[in-house]
Protein backbone atom coordinates (compact mmCIF):
# COMPACT_ATOMS: atom_id res chain seq x y z
CA UNK A 1 0.00 0.00 0.00
CA UNK A 2 1.24 3.49 -0.78
CA UNK A 3 1.99 5.69 2.18
CA UNK A 4 2.57 9.41 2.20
CA UNK A 5 5.21 10.83 4.51
CA UNK A 6 5.77 14.49 5.22
CA UNK A 7 9.29 15.18 6.49
CA UNK A 8 10.56 18.52 7.76
CA UNK A 9 14.33 18.79 7.28
CA UNK A 10 17.28 21.20 7.27
CA UNK A 11 17.60 23.02 3.96
CA UNK A 12 21.20 21.86 3.46
CA UNK A 13 23.23 19.87 0.92
CA UNK A 14 23.12 16.11 1.32
CA UNK A 15 20.02 15.99 3.51
CA UNK A 16 17.82 14.56 0.76
CA UNK A 17 20.31 11.73 0.22
CA UNK A 18 20.17 10.85 3.90
CA UNK A 19 16.38 10.74 3.78
CA UNK A 20 16.03 8.71 0.59
CA UNK A 21 18.93 6.44 1.55
CA UNK A 22 16.89 5.01 4.42
CA UNK A 23 14.22 3.88 1.98
CA UNK A 24 16.64 2.60 -0.66
CA UNK A 25 18.57 0.59 1.95
CA UNK A 26 15.50 -1.57 2.53
CA UNK A 27 15.04 -2.17 -1.19
CA UNK A 28 11.86 -0.14 -1.56
CA UNK A 29 11.13 2.25 -4.36
CA UNK A 30 10.09 5.85 -3.85
CA UNK A 31 6.97 6.41 -5.94
CA UNK A 32 6.98 10.13 -5.70
CA UNK A 33 9.10 12.79 -4.12
CA UNK A 34 8.69 16.54 -3.80
CA UNK A 35 11.03 18.88 -1.94
CA UNK A 36 11.10 22.61 -1.44
CA UNK A 37 11.66 25.24 1.17
CA UNK A 38 8.97 26.09 3.67
CA UNK A 39 7.84 29.30 5.39
CA UNK A 40 11.23 29.15 7.13
CA UNK A 41 14.00 29.33 4.53
CA UNK A 42 16.26 27.17 6.74
CA UNK A 43 13.83 24.27 6.48
CA UNK A 44 12.62 22.15 3.60
CA UNK A 45 9.61 19.90 3.44
CA UNK A 46 9.94 16.52 1.76
CA UNK A 47 6.74 14.81 0.68
CA UNK A 48 7.49 11.19 -0.12
CA UNK A 49 5.19 8.45 -1.32
CA UNK A 50 6.47 4.93 -0.70
CA UNK A 51 4.85 1.65 -1.61
CA UNK A 52 5.75 -0.51 1.39
CA UNK A 53 4.16 -2.41 4.25
CA UNK A 54 3.02 -0.45 7.25
CA UNK A 55 5.68 -1.91 9.55
CA UNK A 56 8.44 -1.06 7.07
CA UNK A 57 7.21 2.53 6.85
CA UNK A 58 6.92 2.60 10.63
CA UNK A 59 10.55 1.53 10.97
CA UNK A 60 11.68 3.98 8.28
CA UNK A 61 9.79 6.76 10.09
CA UNK A 62 11.64 6.02 13.32
CA UNK A 63 14.97 5.91 11.49
CA UNK A 64 14.14 9.24 9.83
CA UNK A 65 13.50 10.76 13.26
CA UNK A 66 17.03 9.78 14.22
CA UNK A 67 18.64 11.80 11.44
CA UNK A 68 20.17 14.92 12.93
CA UNK A 69 18.84 17.02 10.02
CA UNK A 70 15.25 15.86 10.44
CA UNK A 71 12.86 17.86 12.64
CA UNK A 72 9.54 16.16 12.12
CA UNK A 73 8.16 13.13 10.32
CA UNK A 74 4.44 12.62 9.83
CA UNK A 75 2.86 9.60 8.18
CA UNK A 76 -0.12 11.35 6.63
CA UNK A 77 -1.66 8.19 5.24
CA UNK A 78 -4.13 7.64 8.02
CA UNK A 79 -4.75 11.27 8.89
CA UNK A 80 -6.88 13.88 7.23
CA UNK A 81 -4.83 15.74 4.67
CA UNK A 82 -5.00 17.61 1.37
CA UNK A 83 -2.72 16.50 -1.43
CA UNK A 84 -2.08 17.82 -4.89
CA UNK A 85 0.15 17.03 -7.80
CA UNK A 86 0.86 18.96 -10.96
CA UNK A 87 1.04 17.13 -14.29
CA UNK A 88 2.02 18.21 -17.78
CA UNK A 89 0.52 16.08 -20.58
CA UNK A 90 1.81 16.42 -24.11
CA UNK A 91 -0.83 14.86 -26.40
CA UNK A 92 -1.13 14.34 -30.13
CA UNK A 93 -3.59 16.89 -31.45
CA UNK A 94 -3.94 17.37 -35.12
CA UNK A 95 -6.18 20.36 -35.85
CA UNK A 96 -9.25 18.16 -36.49
CA UNK A 97 -9.35 16.83 -32.92
CA UNK A 98 -8.20 19.87 -31.00
CA UNK A 99 -11.76 20.87 -30.19
CA UNK A 100 -12.48 17.63 -28.36
CA UNK A 101 -9.34 17.96 -26.31
CA UNK A 102 -10.06 21.57 -25.41
CA UNK A 103 -13.49 20.46 -24.22
CA UNK A 104 -11.90 17.85 -21.93
CA UNK A 105 -9.49 20.45 -20.63
CA UNK A 106 -12.38 22.72 -19.72
CA UNK A 107 -14.35 19.98 -17.99
CA UNK A 108 -11.35 19.11 -15.84
CA UNK A 109 -10.47 22.78 -15.24
CA UNK A 110 -7.04 22.13 -16.69
CA UNK A 111 -5.04 24.57 -18.81
CA UNK A 112 -3.42 24.49 -22.20
CA UNK A 113 0.07 25.89 -21.85
CA UNK A 114 1.60 25.13 -25.25
CA UNK A 115 0.27 24.52 -28.76
CA UNK A 116 2.13 23.25 -31.82
CA UNK A 117 1.11 21.95 -35.24
CA UNK A 118 0.67 18.42 -33.97
CA UNK A 119 0.44 18.57 -30.20
CA UNK A 120 -1.03 20.29 -27.17
CA UNK A 121 0.57 20.57 -23.74
CA UNK A 122 -1.90 20.52 -20.88
CA UNK A 123 -1.20 21.58 -17.31
CA UNK A 124 -3.38 20.08 -14.64
CA UNK A 125 -3.40 20.02 -10.85
CA UNK A 126 -5.32 17.61 -8.70
CA UNK A 127 -5.42 14.44 -6.72
CA UNK A 128 -4.27 11.09 -7.98
CA UNK A 129 -7.82 10.06 -8.98
CA UNK A 130 -8.54 13.14 -10.99
CA UNK A 131 -5.19 13.08 -12.78
CA UNK A 132 -5.66 9.38 -13.51
CA UNK A 133 -9.08 9.98 -15.01
CA UNK A 134 -7.72 12.69 -17.28
CA UNK A 135 -4.84 10.48 -18.33
CA UNK A 136 -7.19 7.64 -19.34
CA UNK A 137 -9.28 10.00 -21.44
CA UNK A 138 -6.27 11.54 -23.13
CA UNK A 139 -4.83 8.15 -24.06
CA UNK A 140 -7.36 7.98 -26.88
CA UNK A 141 -5.56 10.84 -28.61
CA UNK A 142 -2.12 9.48 -28.00
CA UNK A 143 0.00 10.79 -25.14
CA UNK A 144 3.52 11.72 -26.22
CA UNK A 145 4.88 12.54 -22.77
CA UNK A 146 3.80 12.90 -19.14
CA UNK A 147 5.73 14.78 -16.48
CA UNK A 148 4.51 14.81 -12.88
CA UNK A 149 5.76 17.09 -10.12
CA UNK A 150 5.40 14.52 -7.37
CA UNK A 151 2.74 14.76 -4.73
CA UNK A 152 2.73 17.47 -2.11
CA UNK A 153 0.53 17.14 0.94
CA UNK A 154 -0.48 19.12 4.01
CA UNK A 155 -2.60 18.09 7.00
CA UNK A 156 -6.04 19.70 7.20
CA UNK A 157 -6.86 22.37 9.77
Amino acid sequence: MSRTLSILVDNKPGVLTRVTGLVARRGYNIESLAVSITEDSNRSCVTMVVDADEDVVHQVTKQLHKLINVYKVVDLTESDYVDRELVLFKVNADPSRRGEIVELVNIFRAKIVDVSQTSLTIEMTGTDDKLGAMERLLREYGIKEIIRSGKIAIPRG
Binding site: P13, G14, T17, R18, G21, R25, L67, I68
Partner: peptide, 14 residues
Protein backbone atom coordinates in the same frame (compact mmCIF):
# COMPACT_ATOMS: atom_id res chain seq x y z
CA UNK B 1 33.68 10.56 1.77
CA UNK B 2 30.41 11.75 3.26
CA UNK B 3 28.55 9.86 0.52
CA UNK B 4 30.45 6.61 1.00
CA UNK B 5 30.07 6.68 4.79
CA UNK B 6 26.47 7.92 4.82
CA UNK B 7 24.72 4.66 5.74
CA UNK B 8 27.17 3.84 8.54
CA UNK B 9 27.45 7.10 10.45
CA UNK B 10 25.31 8.62 13.14
CA UNK B 11 25.98 11.93 11.44
CA UNK B 12 28.51 13.52 9.10
CA UNK B 13 29.70 16.92 7.96
CA UNK B 14 31.30 18.24 4.79
Amino acid sequence: TTGITLPVVKHSYL
